[in-house]
Amino acid sequence: MAIDKFTTITATAVPVPYENIDTDQIIPARFLKATTRDGFGENLFRDWRYDKDNNPKKDFELNNTKYSGPILVGGKNFGSGSSREHAAWAIHDYGFKVVVSSFFADIFKNNSLNNGLLPVQISEEFLEKIFSAIDKDPKAQFKVDLENQEISIMSTGEKEKFDINPYKKECLINGYDDIDYLLSMKDKIEAFEKTRVKPYTY
């Protein structure tokens, strides 16, 4: 089953300039009761977005109409904590295609890549530049070019390269899915199983 193909994006961004944003903030546990993948965007950053009477909290960036766009920019160590893939689903379902940070938690990174959400990891200096570009002009444009593994600040022309596993890059560009790949290896997996004898199989 294919995931969305990723091409180049040039767009505005939404900042959430806090460090250590964990997946409990991205999607609180009480919203994990669904048995489908849909609709999690509604509860993205639920407790930061709404107070207990469900009124939007004005000071939270997602509620500030001056910010918009498919690029989410978070502080260092984004997506730590729980392995819940619901966090990646929520961000994607809300409409984001890219998450930028200077550091990602491992499981979050894998989960994002498995859902066509591109994690872009950059240096702390460049992250600061992006935050200040948005600060200066909330409509500042950024270009995320997966093919060339490059993110640019359009107003200043500054660029930085980012890393991505070549296999994962191929998957995203072509919309391939890991499970299809693994299913195509079934014979090899079964052959491997035959090589495993006691006591290794305990």
């Binding site: 893939e85 990646a88 894998n110 498995n114 499970i179 290896m185």
Partner: peptide, 14 residues
């Protein structure tokens, strides 16, 4: 692991 990976393991044990 995440849920897509749970699906991977269920489907292929890998």
């Amino acid at each position: 692991i995440g849920t897509s990976e749970v699906e991977m393991v269920l489907a292929t044990q890998c």
